[in-house]
Design a binder for these strands. Structure first.
Lengths: 356, 356
DNA sequence: GCGATTTACGGAAGGGTTTCCATCATTTTC
DNA sequence: GAAAATGATGGAAACCCTTCCGTAAATCGC
């Protein structure tokens, strides 16, 4: 409020605001020329160019980001709305996203969703006119209401780990993956395979359930609701360790009725399940076989058999796709589905275990 | 703050660019008044206010973010430079950061560092004039050269999980924590305690080493270089699972000389160490005791005794501090150090194990 | 050698806000 | 009832850039 003289005059230079007008004056040229030089426009003579660049350097010129964005009618920014609670999966995808974004010289604005009801607010914020050139929604069911508004704005939108007919999407063949995982267990000879699922508000959870169910049926094994447990008191969508623990504890209560093989809809749930099993005196894989989904870093560590998703790649592709749409809004809507691959480790009991 | 999104009536107004001039014309008032209404300036009569708000809603007005930022000389943006390779720790802190940032209505621009040499480039980008109101650097040793430039710009800067005399910082008493962890093992009767450390480019690694060493010496146990191993072929700073694995394998090679208790400088390294031990036929904690550092979610799952850092809180505080400095640049530089707390679980062997 | 192109350049206009200052209408004060 | 204070308002100026248009000089074609 009261900033008269600068307290320390030693640095007369200070980070004063140098504009193109200063450069123009100093270099004896017009502002248009400055802009042309700075933006590599061809019609500037080499001498002028050099002169301008020298002055700009001497004055330590920095363009004002927001003035540029305003004038260019471009934000050079992409925002990502991600659910923080899906931790391990999203962070890998995010790495890919960030990698590509910074390679392109864009900025990444992050909106981390802790509770589903925040989605709408974040979407509104990202939608402020001119704010971003595109938005990516991660792993979440975007409310129809929001979806409709997004559609209206005509802003490039991408869905990652989610699908909607109206927008580009990058996803994983969840049903297919679940089918493969379950089939793997069946082929190992298990005649009863349970599933640890997440809340059905999550689209991937639903799809994985379908794949699981189909695998059972194709192999002549009856599906019943009792074969699927979902952790109740769990945060959010249920893709977390506690939910896995709870679900497995439900199974344990069944006593001798308990299946001896399980497909968990995420690795992190499988981790919880392993805890529950260990605490209940079951060994994995000797007593109980388990297959997860995701192949997070930890899965390797825990020797968990799982379905691998190419997370980093998905992130990279999501950005590439989004950028493509920015430069060509009329591009046909594209849905890319990656097929997860079965990574066989020890938790399923398929390997002879000769290391310990 | 104020965006008037009418839930899609088939409004005559497509996502056309509506400006305050349009509102002014339509409402029969001047643009100054529009701005005052939208920014809750007191001197507007209730009738005028209502009239303006009605028109704004009807036209589905959205302020242009960058025009506002340009005129306000304020970016309402904070950027965070984070090392992606410190995964589990940073993500928790980031949650706190993001939580607070969005509560304040700011935007978070994320720069994820995969290789140390990227820091400089990202810093330069964040430093573009007007681009951000403040920057947070996470868990990294910022090169002196960059530090000097940051200082020059006078932009509010905060360090998280790192310390430098010239900037505010939020950190953890690493030496103290390492001391406590090591002492815990010593008090459990171990006469030889090894340490699994990260690369010494990392300040926390160095400090934890110091605490470890002091604990040994205070308890009359000689410190030798052989007691500390660092994974070699590891990504980045060595705070990762593979590095922990490698380091422990080095210890295993020692045969009967191998210590039977270890302090690992991070939980994730402890995970790797456990793998190495298991593969080599050692049980934890029966044969070998282990204490980690961080208390990532996984630690609970693995029943790892560890030093807990209040990660989420640290993130929240980092933003609060940064924002405080923005509004008062002459504020005295503040360093906050959290003391980690020992969380005793099973891996150290202190608990009777009656659950399985 | 002279009109027709081409090229380099200056600077106004535009991008969409906020803020400040002047103006005018109301109230208040004595 | 006049002077002064107060309050609401309009709009120019500022924020800092890019882009477009017009001009002047240089180059070309024949």
């Amino acid at each position: 409020m009261c900033s008269f003289g600068s307290p320390s005059k030693k640095s007369e230079v200070m980070a004063k605001k140098v504009t193109i007008y200063d450069i123009a004056r100093e270099a004896g040229v017009g502002i248009g020329t400055i802009s042309r030089v700075l933006n590599d426009h061809p019609s500037v003579t080499p001498e002028t160019r050099k002169k301008v660049i020298d002055v700009a350097k001497r004055l330590n010129y920095q363009p004002h980001t927001y003035a540029q964005r305003l004038a260019r009618r471009q934000s050079e920014t992409i925002s990502a709305v991600i659910p923080f609670f899906t931790n391990y999966f999203f962070i890998e995808v995010l790495r890919g996203v960030q990698d590509k974004i910074s390679e392109l010289g864009y900025d990444l604005v992050l909106y981390g969703v802790e509770r589903p009801d925040q989605v709408e607010g974040y979407a509104a914020r990202a939608l402020q006119r001119g704010k971003v050139d595109g938005i990516l929604f991660f792993s979440m069911k975007v409310p129809d209401k929001v979806l409709a508004r997004l559609k209206e704005t005509n802003l490039p939108i991408g869905l990652v780990d989610a699908v909607s007919p109206e927008f580009d999407s990058i996803s994983v063949a969840n049903a297919e993956g679940a089918y493969a995982a379950t089939t793997h267990l069946i082929e190992l000879g298990h005649r009863s395979v349970g599933m640890i699922n997440a809340q059905s508000v999550s689209a991937p959870a639903l799809e994985r359930l379908q794949g699981y169910r189909r695998a059972l049926e194709r192999h002549g094994m009856p599906f019943t609701d009792e074969l699927v447990k979902i952790g109740k008191n769990s945060r959010q969508d249920g893709f977390n360790r506690d939910a896995g623990y709870e679900a497995m504890m439900e199974f344990v209560k069944l006593g001798s009725e308990m299946p001896k093989a399980f497909f968990a809809s995420s690795d992190i749930q499988a981790m919880g399940a392993i805890s529950a099993l260990t605490e209940s005196g079951f060994r994995v894989p000797e007593d109980v076989a388990l297959v997860g989904f995701d192949d997070i870093e930890l899965a390797r560590h825990m020797r968990l058999t799982t379905m691998r998703q190419p997370m980093f790649q998905m992130g990279v592709l999501a950005i590439e796709r989004l950028v493509a749409r920015m430069s060509n809004p009329d591009m046909e809507i594209l849905h890319t589905t990656f097929s997860p691959t079965l990574i066989v480790r020890e938790s399923c009991g398929a390997l002879t275990r000769n290391q310990n």
